[in-house]
Design a protein around this nucleic acid. Structure first.
Lengths: 185, 185
DNA sequence: AGGTACATGTAACATGTTACATGATTCC
DNA sequence: GGAATCATGTAACATGTTACATGTACCT
């Protein structure tokens, strides 16, 4: 039940069309919640039906033509309600670890190549995050007003989570490759 | 498409009934791939139909009575095929980070309590992993035969991934709580 | 006979994925 | 007018979740 709230958050940050949302889910929002354009259009329809968002006025909506949405008061209330609540840390589902466990039983053929591939991807993602941090969160210097600073602190914390996770994976992948038995091919 | 392979791996490690698998998915296997008993029974049925596993002989299978499965040769081949392959690191979906991002827009009410709750859970999980490591992977001393040692190295690497991830979250949660604005209640 | 733990399952629904369909706009 | 891009959507399917149903074994 998180996708609708991800969309509400995104639309509060900035009213957008389905495709614009899709692009934002490929960048910043996607760093902690991914979604395809099909999911987004389906969910936009539901949120509109539920009266939580509405399409901005336009003359005669036509298929193929941009349609922007904004959050209605009821939508903001729902997001506040959800944000104040909680849930269990969701169970881990990491296929790479599953592969390792399987390899412990049926052999490590191809495993090192897969680890190398993941390492390259994680390094690229980490560099990407670091670049965003450099650009969007320069090392203090500008004490903005309190409310804006609070929001910034939270967004920075989210980004640091991404950086920390990628950093961990890069280290773990490097260690694990080093400890791997020579390829038995 | 990972659940069937998780089950094949588990059954190769040790033939089991549905309920036994469910319990193992709540412990060791669940550390990197979770599943409920309903998913497991459904998937066992599919794997049996597909000829990858079979129920161990028993006289007249009855509902309510234990039914053990073992992996057939075709199942091992399928697992080998899957293990040698690869896939993209799956997209992140972390509701807690989404909540932070939402809180940056609608306010931080209740957020610190939620972070504190996660911190306690992560610490408990970390202690659990450390205990398992202490018990199952004592600091060397016993150079077992090569094949067993290879499997152990891989299983240990999986466990270290769990330990590293929980360690990261404990640190991040601690830092983030410290940086949080005082509760605006 | 009643309760509890063990054990296997069904049904309904929610969410996520993959493949495809359709129209609008812009540039050549 | 054809190709590329923007933009919205449908359909079918796979996977995951929640609630419930049923039977066995054992203990009291």
């Amino acid at each position: 039940m998180s996708l609708p709230h991800a969309i509400l958050t995104a639309l509060l940050e900035k009213p957008s069309s389905g495709l614009e949302l899709t692009r934002r889910f490929d960048r910043s929002i996607g760093f902690f919640w991914s979604a395809t354009h099909q999911q987004i259009y389906r969910e936009l329809g539901r949120l509109e039906t539920a009266g939580l968002i509405r399409a901005l006025p336009q003359d005669a909506p036509v298929r193929g033509q941009k349609k922007e949405y904004e959050v209605l008061p009821a939508g903001r209330v729902e997001l506040e309600r959800w944000t104040a609540g909680g849930d269990e840390p969701k169970a881990v589902r990491e296929p790479l670890l599953l592969r390792l466990r399987a390899a412990a039983v049926v052999g490590t053929t191809g495993l090192d190549a897969e680890l190398a591939r993941h390492l390259a991807l994680r390094r690229a993602q980490l560099a990407d995050y670091r670049e965003i941090e450099r650009r969007d969160f320069p090392p203090s210097g500008t004490p903005a007003d309190d409310r804006a600073a609070d929001g910034d602190r939270l967004r920075h914390a989210v980004l640091r989570a991404g950086i920390g996770l990628e950093t961990f994976w890069v280290e773990w992948l490097t260690e694990t490759r080093a400890a791997l038995p020579a390829d038995p091919s």
